[in-house]
Each structure stands twice: as C-alpha cells, then as structure tokens.
Design a protein around this nucleic acid. Structure first.
Lengths: 130, 130
DNA sequence: CATCCAGTGCTAAAAATTTAGCATATGCGA
DNA sequence: TCGCATATGCTAAATTTTTAGCACTGGATG
C-alpha cells in the first residue's frame, strides 16, 4: 500500500507538509500553511494535501465545516525509518555517534533526571539485548 | 552562502544524491548512479551533480580523467541539523524518545562494549552539562 | 588505424511539482 | 438581509525538476 511508501520518495513540498503533520500530529490546511517554510497560498496547500491523500500518506476527517488532516502512518512507524536513514547517511550507522550528536544537540535541555532515564534505557537494552 | 542552505530545501532527486554523497563520503557520477533508488541515466545524474555544484552543495575534484564529487558541508555540519529535524518532527524534540528508538533500531548490533560506550557518553554529558 | 568504452560540457525537452484562481458553500457579525 | 472571512472541489497553468541526447575527448584494445 502507498502508505507504506517512504517519506524519502516525496517531493520537496510534499515532504515539508508531511513534516508539519508529523510535528503537529494533525492540522487543518490553514495551520499547515502557517507552518510551512516559504509558504505558498492556501489553495496550493490544499491541492498538495489532496495529492498526499491520493498517495495514501494522509487522511482527513471533517471537523465541523473544515477538514483536519493527519498522517496515515503513525509517528513511530514513520519516525524509525527516518531516524535509521539519518543514522546511515551521516553517522555510519553508528548508534554511538548518533547518541553523541544527540547529547550535544540537547545539551542545554537535559536534566540529571533526563540523563538517568537515558542510562536506564541503556541498561534495559543491555538486559533485553541478550 | 548557498552551502549553508538546508538539505531540506532540495528537491527529491537532489536530496537523494546528497544522501549518497554523505553516505559514501565522495563518489564519481557513475558511483552515485549505482546507488540511487530508481536510477535515471548517467547524463541525468551528471546534470544534477552540476546543479548541486551550482547551488554550492557539492564540489568536484578531477581524479585522472573523471570527476570525484563530495559534499561541501562536512558530515558533522550536515548531520546535526538532519538529526535535530528528525528529533523535532517525530520525537517531540525528546532525546529520550530518540535514544529509545535508536536502541531499538540497533538492538541486534549492539555489543556490551557498545553499551558501555553509550553509558560513558551519558556520564560525560552529565559532567559537562552542568 | 578504427572501435569501444567511459568520461565531460551543454542543451532543451519531457515530466513532475507547485501554484493560483474560479465557483460554490457556510458561518458570523452588523 | 448583506458582506466578509473561511472553507471545499476542481482545474489548468506556471514553474521547477528531471531526463536524455548530442558532440566531443581520452585511453585501451585489436
């Protein structure tokens, strides 16, 4: 099914719109428009949402008299391949390198409690990985 | 300068080519061609490499009688924003969620030594973060 | 020598993407 | 009621992207 198709095969604008939808979880066309870099007009966004729906990447639900769009594939199901792709492309597939970069990126936001949780994740992986 | 421009503003094929180049570090046009999903012809790849060079994303060096292309921005300088983007788009900006997904992705490849190194990274972050 | 193969520079056409605009509908406020 | 703002369905044109093809070069081979 088309919904299984990688985000990486989408065109530039399609991809930007999918990213807005994944970030927000769901959004109306006008909300998508507000959050697009270098935004086109409203009808351009709607046309692209329709295309994405035709492609099976997006679905909409009527909310009163307007449509709310959301990705058809869950965040988890889409986020993993995206993360794996970045890992492979920029980090030699190395979790260590990626975690190092992650820690660096998040440096100013991570509390001790956060770091404890990360340590716990690693311990868990250690227990489960065998 | 254009080289600072985000990979996210590239078109579909341009982006695919940049990903090949980041993955391989450097490549000739024919090597890029081999590694592209749903590859076009050789001259199509060369035309796109020239466009990417015009845009400042790529440079080439003559290697004998052929050109070897590489990204102008380093892997580190390009990989961080890419990782940050995935973090924000799919993981609410949460390092914890991303690490959990990373560990899951890498589950079958991580040795105890790898996990030790990840733990060390976290300890380092703990010491440096304050 | 001629031929073949792999390469480059360049162009322009084919294809895909992006965009805006029209007709229509609905809801709200004056 | 009317006017305005926001919405949808739809189309097609504008724009960008992608592609292939031509002319040429250089090296290797028979």
């Amino acid at each position: 099914m088309a919904a299984k198709k990688a985000l990486s095969s989408l065109s530039r604008r399609e991809r930007q719109i999918m990213e807005v939808l994944y970030r927000e979880g769901r959004a109306t066309a006008s909300e998508v428009l507000e959050r697009l870099p270098d935004p086109p007009g409203y009808s351009a966004v709607r046309a692209l949402l329709r295309i994405l729906e035709d492609k099976g990447q997006v679905r909409h639900a009527a909310d009163g008299n307007r449509y709310v769009y959301e990705p058809r594939l869950s965040r988890d199901r889409a986020g993993r391949p995206a993360l794996a792709g970045v890992l492979e492309t920029f980090f030699d597939g190395s979790a260590e390198k990626a975690v190092a970069a992650l820690l660096d990126l998040s440096r100013h936001e991570l509390t001790d409690a956060d770091l404890d949780r990360l340590s716990d994740l690693i311990e868990q992986a250690r227990l489960e990985g065998r």
